[in-house]
Nucleic acid binder design. Sequence first.
DNA 1: TTGTAAGCGTTATCAA
DNA 2: TTGATAACGCTTACAA
Lengths: 337, 337
Amino acid sequence: MDIGEIARRAGVSRSTVSYALSGRRPVRAETKQRIQAVIDEIGYRPNAAARALKEGRTRTLGLVIPPASLRLTDMQLGFVASVVEAAAHADLDVLLSPSGGDHDRSFERMISGRRVDGVVLMEIRLEDERVTRLDRAGLPFVTIGHTAHPRGTSWIDVDYATLVARCVHHLADLGHRRIALINRSPELVAAGYGPAHRAQAGFAEAVRRRGLTGVELACQDDPAAGEECFEQLRERHPDVTAITTVNEAALPGIQRGIERAGVDVPGAMSIAGVAARHWAEGFRPQLTAADVPTLEMGARAVELLLERIATPGAPARHLLLTPPISLRDSTGPAPAR
Amino acid sequence: MDIGEIARRAGVSRSTVSYALSGRRPVRAETKQRIQAVIDEIGYRPNAAARALKEGRTRTLGLVIPPASLRLTDMQLGFVASVVEAAAHADLDVLLSPSGGDHDRSFERMISGRRVDGVVLMEIRLEDERVTRLDRAGLPFVTIGHTAHPRGTSWIDVDYATLVARCVHHLADLGHRRIALINRSPELVAAGYGPAHRAQAGFAEAVRRRGLTGVELACQDDPAAGEECFEQLRERHPDVTAITTVNEAALPGIQRGIERAGVDVPGAMSIAGVAARHWAEGFRPQLTAADVPTLEMGARAVELLLERIATPGAPARHLLLTPPISLRDSTGPAPAR
DNA sequence: TTGTAAGCGTTATCAA
DNA sequence: TTGATAACGCTTACAA
């Protein structure tokens, strides 16, 4: 059932059917109705490949996700969901490419096979080959997260440095003098993963500014590691009275550690972090945190991408979000010595 | 950079380039090398749309996921990840369609626009319109989960009825006489969601067989609901000594409820369930559970789908998995009265 | 208001 | 062993 079949049954030419569908040329109302009737009857839809070939665009966006072997965090999942939803809203499909470091087959297929009109890249590293590759291919793209020197690229990110600094300031205002940062995994830090680096930088700077004592711990992205990390902290730095964290996946473990150690939060220990609202509210007591707006970020990423596709020449734009810290129940005055 | 460009630079015809690439016709070694050199130099890949148009297949699989607004559970995410990975392994791309109930735009686009060679459907209901739709479209598909009467369709599923029954038997063997089932949400049960129904059936049957007292509770797929559900259970049925559950998303909440109530597991209360290994091992104490092999299921689903695509006439196949219950630390003898 | 025909980049048939 | 060419299904410039 191709367009010719519709044309035949409606007694018109193929172009008339095409125009009736696209509306790019006036078609007599009666003719249009007859065509529509036939289409409804046999359920015709233009063949996507033929259309893509002719139009030179696929009406598909590529979404590059971390490879399946690595567990996606809840935040990453939030991005995927929101990107897919935003794309669907614009009548665009999403092609998934699980690609890790440099060039992966599915990534290459997507790029050089011209399977997509644009790409959303997540889990960006400070130096990222995929960005270079996309640049060279001349394919519009937007990154969630940003490289060390995102010259001409459009991106959207959360300002981890500022958010962590704000957490530190908030805790310092409450009288805390010894604060720990529970960062993401050592591997990510080593691989030059932006958020981990920037959290580090924001923490160091704020601690310095306020004349505090700062302790930094790297922690895998899972509950078990969180629990272990908390225990280690209690053991090695028993005088720390406040924690700030950007590792949401470790939160359940941190909580378990707190409960097992019988530590009163926020009486004896305050915690403030950066996490999706879902995690912050799931924490007991509810976590004072900057809520990462994953849904909005995905939607905005698609928005930026559509802009770049529409006008590739336009200057790159970026959005650096600093969501406010939602004051919940996990932070309070430092305990008296 | 199309195939013509390669042909020109290599001094051969377009068909020779095509054959050199596909190997469907012998090409002189020297010629082949020259062509490959040019391709490597300018990084050519066949245009996917043109190839799809000509070949009548897209080398793309569709994956229908629950709409983004609904949070995906960890298990669902596991399926997505494993399907994408398995597809990538077969050099196939995956197109995502977030589609809820009946016909969604992106779902329709995928089907009637012939954007994919086959479809993997998840979150199947006992009566599922999407299955009917795919059947009518004559598009090969495989479902993760199965409908009430999966006549000619290929599917893969976990045998919830048997697994829940096994949990009940295990608990009964340990001397428990009053057992609760924490099922999935009331909405899912009402919507005719298979796993919830089958868990119910398996539970009822096993309880009857062993002459036990069974209590069934429906619970939303999130920690808060799990906690509430546990409290409700303690209040209304204080004599229950064992729980079996298929609601992995509720596990962290159940755990919190246990800890808050100061209940000793497995001393005073045993728990056995069906959950991804990840969740079972994250539970404290580690959960005795049938581990849902999400990774394997995604891979097998793709395998079945490729079979159906290759030989659409072949009889439908299905795989009903009953992974063994991994004995961990959350089940023990019923407390003496 | 509608029809004719070219062309998008491949693959595959038919000739050489 | 290779080349010319038709065809896949669509959109759109050009004609009528």
